[in-house]
Amino acid sequence: MAFTKVTEIIKESPAFAQLTDLAAARLGGKVLYATDDFFAEKENLIAPTRGIFIADKYTDRGKWMDGWESRRKRTPGHDWAIIQLATSGKIIGFDIDTNFFLGNHPPHASVEAAYLPDAPEDTNWETVAWKEILPKSHLDPGSQNFYECSSDEIYTHLRLHIYPDGGVARFRVYGEVFKDWNSVSTTEEIDLAAAINGGQAMACNDMFFSAMGNLIMPGRGVNMGDGWETKRNRTPNNRDWVILRLAHKGIVDRIIVDTCHFKGNYPDSCSIEACCSDTDNLENANWQILLPQQKLNADFIHEFGNEVQKGQVITHVRLNIFPDGGVSRLRIFGKIVR
């Protein structure tokens, strides 16, 4: 198995960083255990956004840090943490981010993985048959440390080792959701676009204020930053757009467009197009109207049923907003087609 260090101090994220973060807390990931989180809690590892720094903030244990930080080890060994992925999946790459950990970052890290779909949270993790998927690798201080992973196996749990101790701000596990579609009935309505089911934000013309991937996260947006928002566009008759690949080929029953928290910056209207394609190369795709142009309101859940052009078998959707603005969530409810 080959592993490649992508870069030293990253300026541009690698392509795999556009994939779903399988460990993300907001998707359902959990940090189940750490050998030591004396200075900063293990749960911070999978929190959204990069870690922050507050110069004068201290706790009764020392400097407050936005990440996972163990105490200085005075005995043999090293520290490690267990992460349960939000969903089983194939891992493409990692970001071991030491943002703001400068004199206290671990010099090296490694990652092991296991497929344990039914493991209880109080498992004895030292008895698990772990498989190394990232060997002991160098970490730069205050940096995103990207590494590729070439394993083709499906995993549910990871063990992040740091050598010997110190702090990691965030741990991102980028990959592809694995879902057993044979267990899903063709009569069951599901959110075909949801990230937890394997939906993926593929491309957009603008995401100046917030990322397109937020559209398909679970739950409603927690604030205005937790959505897809484009810059103000002064071009007459402008249209901003985002393309999503559905988790599975299907037929749409109803659609929800949620402008939660977008009050002075929601789009005036939206429409949705769809196509059926065997690939993500959509240059010559035959886009058809799925939802004709609809007026939108501020901070509101818009549900469309009768307005949807039903019966199309589709794999991708394109949400158009006029002329610009923010949408918190997009739900594409329908039934799979085998």
Score class of each variant (00 low, 15 high):
residue 241 W to P: 14
residue 214 N to S: 10
residue 249 K to H: 09
residue 221 G to Y: 00
residue 233 N to R: 07
residue 224 M to H: 09
residue 221 G to D: 00
residue 221 G to L: 00
residue 211 A to Q: 08
residue 204 C to Y: 05
residue 229 E to Y: 07
residue 237 N to C: 14
residue 208 F to Q: 12
residue 231 K to C: 13
residue 249 K to T: 07
residue 241 W to M: 13
residue 209 F to P: 05
residue 227 G to L: 05
residue 208 F to N: 12
residue 242 V to D: 15
residue 222 V to A: 07
residue 232 R to T: 06
residue 211 A to E: 10
residue 220 R to A: 04
residue 233 N to Y: 07
residue 245 R to L: 07
residue 223 N to D: 03
residue 244 L to C: 11
residue 210 S to A: 01
residue 223 N to F: 04
residue 246 L to E: 01
residue 234 R to K: 10
residue 239 R to L: 09
residue 237 N to M: 13
residue 240 D to G: 12
residue 228 W to H: 04
residue 212 M to D: 12
residue 204 C to D: 03
residue 207 M to K: 15
residue 221 G to M: 01
residue 244 L to R: 04
residue 228 W to A: 05
residue 211 A to P: 09
residue 228 W to Q: 02
residue 221 G to A: 06
residue 209 F to T: 01
residue 222 V to F: 09
residue 209 F to H: 02
residue 207 M to E: 11
residue 237 N to V: 05
residue 238 N to V: 09
residue 212 M to L: 09
residue 229 E to M: 06
residue 248 H to E: 07
residue 208 F to C: 15
residue 220 R to E: 09
residue 215 L to P: 05
residue 228 W to I: 03
residue 217 M to I: 07
residue 219 G to A: 01
residue 217 M to Y: 10
residue 207 M to I: 05
residue 212 M to A: 11
residue 224 M to F: 11
residue 222 V to T: 03
residue 212 M to W: 08
residue 211 A to W: 12
residue 236 P to A: 08
residue 242 V to L: 08
residue 215 L to Q: 00
residue 242 V to R: 05
residue 217 M to G: 15
residue 215 L to T: 03
residue 209 F to N: 10
residue 246 L to I: 02
residue 246 L to A: 02
residue 205 N to V: 08
residue 209 F to R: 09
residue 246 L to R: 00
residue 224 M to R: 02
residue 218 P to K: 02
residue 219 G to N: 03
residue 207 M to W: 08
residue 237 N to D: 07
residue 234 R to W: 13
residue 221 G to E: 01
residue 218 P to H: 02
residue 240 D to I: 11
residue 249 K to D: 11
residue 211 A to H: 14
residue 221 G to S: 01
residue 219 G to R: 00
residue 237 N to H: 13
residue 239 R to G: 15
residue 230 T to F: 10
residue 218 P to M: 07
residue 225 G to W: 01
residue 215 L to S: 02
residue 234 R to L: 13
residue 226 D to H: 03
residue 242 V to M: 10
residue 243 I to D: 12
residue 239 R to V: 15
residue 223 N to H: 01
residue 235 T to N: 14
residue 223 N to I: 02
residue 219 G to L: 00
residue 211 A to T: 10
residue 206 D to W: 05
residue 238 N to H: 13
residue 243 I to A: 06
residue 216 I to F: 06
residue 248 H to Q: 12
residue 241 W to D: 12
residue 218 P to I: 03
residue 229 E to P: 04
residue 213 G to P: 03
residue 211 A to Y: 13
residue 232 R to D: 11
residue 217 M to R: 06
residue 216 I to C: 13
residue 230 T to A: 06
residue 222 V to S: 01
residue 244 L to P: 10
residue 243 I to E: 10
residue 239 R to P: 15
residue 247 A to W: 04
residue 241 W to T: 08
residue 209 F to G: 01
residue 205 N to P: 14
residue 244 L to F: 01
residue 227 G to M: 04
residue 240 D to E: 11
residue 222 V to C: 03
residue 238 N to Y: 13
residue 238 N to G: 11
residue 218 P to S: 06
residue 230 T to G: 00
residue 231 K to R: 14
residue 248 H to D: 12
residue 210 S to E: 00
residue 219 G to H: 00
residue 249 K to N: 15
residue 207 M to V: 11
residue 208 F to R: 10
residue 208 F to H: 11
residue 249 K to W: 09
residue 216 I to A: 12
residue 232 R to M: 06
residue 241 W to K: 11
residue 235 T to K: 15
residue 218 P to R: 04
residue 248 H to C: 10
